[in-house]
Design a protein around this nucleic acid. Structure first.
Lengths: 339, 339
DNA sequence: TTGTAGGCGTTATCAG
DNA sequence: CTGATAACGCCTACAA
């Protein structure tokens, strides 16, 4: 690998000054002839401008960072995909970090931003602690948070509307004849966990259904294994539907039910949240509340890009509205339940 | 956002020279007292070294790039996860790009590497064209290719052993009493498609099973929709097992079979490849050949890191061995088939 | 051990 | 329109 040609080489090769070469290549004022000569020289030498040197000079890296809790979770995958697309279309590179659901890691990333390797950050924390919000107020580069950040924190923010999403699911289940709707949630100290718990109680009440604490169970994580385990805590024969806080939990619950001979949706309806690709893939296909993870990623990226243009404008918060996607797992019973 | 402190500020604050400040912070020769003073000054001012300036000086960006065809495919997700972990542990940041299964995009990424924004690249192309291999010979930074690159191309390389993986699946199906094993593949002009097609024919023959061209069908893509569609091309009643070139295809095939009243695995066994998380999640759970996508990602990252240390050593190729993971979808029949 | 000075490759300011 | 020159922030000979 030979040493790459620099702008100085190009200038010499074209017989012009360094400054002229730079201008000719960057579209600044230069004569036709100059532009031609420099361009040709650049092509002949295979010159490509060095990103690092350019960044140092102009004070921008043309990189944006994205930090998600778990790179493997389908929700984050679709977020990432949207962020990647948006960011790249705007001419930025994407620097990815996986924080492993660990607040300490997230703080470390915030600190590392001080090195100036990225012009901005999109952060999607699983848990929002005081420590984290504190670290969010005076960051070296603009940040957009995906998740329910307290309103007082002045930071651009994109959020889902979990309570509304839960309500959509509850109303749907009620309208298809279900009355005792259980809820399998993940850890309450997480962003989605707390929002969905609040939403569940509110939605059950406003639907005029009985609120039975035994119908609310907690899984230890947002995984299908945890969902399958949590299903054992559901009170046998006392519910006819289960809402799950995400699709992975729902798949786990469906498996547990199937295993003990309960038929979905004939005996019990199951509804998930996030509407990941999984919902299409499992059997039966899963009714799920689309909370717009892809849209959230896109919005977050746009917010960040706009912020880079105007650093002074007031923080903007945008919420994306949920949409229920009905599939097989919540179909109406064919005839009155037999259990 | 106030302007960040530079090393010059720290030096002045500590009352020492710029050079001393740099040395004190970088662990070069300096007195105890000097180190203390500079460290304190740095902390007081909240100094963090600028990555860009440092990169320009030392000629390394501390960034590695990863380009995958589709950020959403579970295979790539686990690869990415492994790469991210390995790369970060070595102190590098990860720059991610999604190429969209497009050779032109891949070439564009190779070219853009000339800007020097990363110290190396891991590339996992879906198709390996002549144009691509040509572009691989004289790259500005080291590259590791994940996939079956021709042996003559001198580039570090990690590959799966698809033929062996296919053989494992065929042997397993044969040993559980299946005789007419169909094969649903993806596009033949892709890296996995071509390798698995070759593997299938070889494995069927060496298993002493009849090779019937009607049993080989092609899906238009490696997706579950394409798999479901392709299942319609399988010759009814002429096979008792289906091997699918990846898990997504397998899920699609299972759905198609279930839909027409065929029971898996009682009537027909289904086996997938890649052993993605999907295999655990679908119903019935899917027997799948683990081709080590995670391990490949890890190996590729390690290869790249080693290469950065020794740019002269001969290109290394490493292959990861497949492992069959048996689940429900290929269980032995309970009694002789009724069809 | 410490300080001075030069340069990494660009862009941008200023005269000509 | 063009050319010399000064930064950007850091590291590292080299000299003291």
């Amino acid at each position: 690998m030979p040493t790459r040609p620099t702008l100085a080489h190009v200038a010499r090769h074209a017989g012009v000054s360094l400054a002229s070469a730079s201008r000719a290549l960057n579209g600044a004022s230069a004569s036709e002839d100059m532009i031609d000569r420099v361009r040709n020289a650049a092509v002949e030498l295979g010159y490509v401008a060095d990103a690092t040197a350019r960044s140092l000079k102009v004070g921008r890296t043309e990189q944006l960072a994205l930090a998600v809790a778990d790179l493997g979770n389908p929700v984050y995958v679709s977020m990432m995909r949207a962020v990647e697309r948006t960011v790249r279309a705007a001419g930025y590179r994407l620097v990815l970090s996986s924080t492993g659901a660990d607040t300490a890691e997230e703080l470390a990333i915030l600190r590392s931003l001080g090195h100036g390797y990225a012009d901005g950050l999109i952060l999607s924390p699983l848990r929002i602690t005081d420590e984290l919000t504190a670290a969010l107020v005076n960051t070296p580069v603009p940040i957009v948070v995906i998740g329910n950040i307290p309103a007082k924190i002045p930071v651009d923010n994109v959020r889902a509307n979990s309570p509304r999403g839960v309500a959509l699911a509850i109303d749907h289940l009620k309208s298809t004849g279900r009355r005792r709707i259980a809820f399998v949630n993940g850890p309450l100290d997480t962003v989605p966990g707390s929002a969905r718990a609040r939403g569940y109680e509110a939605a059950i009440e406003s639907a005029g259904l009985p609120l039975d604490p035994r119908l609310q169970v907690l899984a230890t994580e947002f995984t299908h294994e945890a969902g399958e385990a949590a299903a054992a805590d559901l009170p046998h024969n006392r519910y006819d539907a289960v809402l799950c806080a995400n699709d992975l939990l729902a798949v786990g619950v469906m498996r547990a039910l199937t295993r003990i001979g309960v038929s979905v949706p004939q005996d019990i309806a199951v509804v998930g949240m996030d509407d990941t690709e999984l919902a299409e893939l499992c059997t039966p296909t899963l009714t799920s509340v689309n909370l717009g993870s892809e849209r959230r990623g896109q919005l977050a990226a746009q917010l960040l890009l706009e912020r880079l243009v105007d650093r002074e404008r007031a923080p903007r918060r945008s919420a994306v509205q949920p949409k229920l996607v009905v599939r097989e797992s919540s179909a109406k019973r064919q005839r009155p339940a037999r259990r």
